[in-house]
Measured scan of single mutants.
Amino acid sequence: NRLGIIYEIQGMKAVVLTSEGEFLIIRRRKDMKVGQQVSFENEDIYNV
């Protein structure tokens, strides 16, 4: 599992900021809110 803070939500995608200072786009889940810490898997990351 990886951890990140939700920075922005766009439709079915969420932008998270990881503890390494990396911004990633992941698959959104219904319970996500901006500012929330979430765990996610590598499979949830969109390749940009």
Rank of each mutant, 00 (worst) to 15 (best):
I45E: 09
S39M: 09
I6K: 00
S19V: 05
D31W: 06
T18P: 01
I5S: 03
D44Q: 02
I45W: 08
Q36S: 08
R28K: 15
G21Q: 03
Q36P: 00
I25E: 07
G35T: 02
E41V: 06
I9S: 01
E8C: 10
I9K: 01
N42H: 11
F23G: 01
M12N: 15
N42Y: 11
I26S: 00
E43M: 02
N47P: 08
V48T: 13
L3Q: 06
V48N: 13
G21Y: 05
I26N: 00
R27G: 10
M32A: 09
D31A: 08
R2F: 09
F23E: 07
Y7P: 00
R27W: 14
L24A: 07
N42P: 07
I25D: 07
N1F: 14
G35M: 06
R29L: 12
K30M: 15
V48W: 04
F23I: 14
A14L: 04
E22C: 13
Y7E: 10
Q37N: 08
E20F: 07
I26H: 00
Q36K: 10
I6F: 00
T18M: 03
Y46M: 12
V38R: 02
Q37T: 14
I5G: 01
S39A: 10
M12C: 15
E8H: 14
N47G: 13
V15H: 05
Q36Y: 10
L24T: 06
R2N: 09
K13Q: 09
F40N: 01
V38W: 09
K33T: 05
D44A: 01
R2L: 09
L3H: 11
V15K: 14
G35K: 03
I45K: 02
V34M: 10
M12W: 12
Q37K: 10
N1D: 11
E43V: 03
Q37W: 11
Q10M: 14
E43N: 05
K13A: 05
L17I: 12
A14N: 01
I45N: 03
G4R: 01
Y46S: 12
K30Q: 15
Y7Q: 13
R27L: 14
G4P: 01
F23R: 04
F23N: 03
G4T: 01
S19H: 09
I6C: 06
I26C: 02
G35Q: 03
N1H: 12
K13H: 13
D44L: 02
G11M: 04
N1I: 15
I25M: 08
V16T: 02
E22I: 11
I9W: 03
F23M: 14
F40R: 01
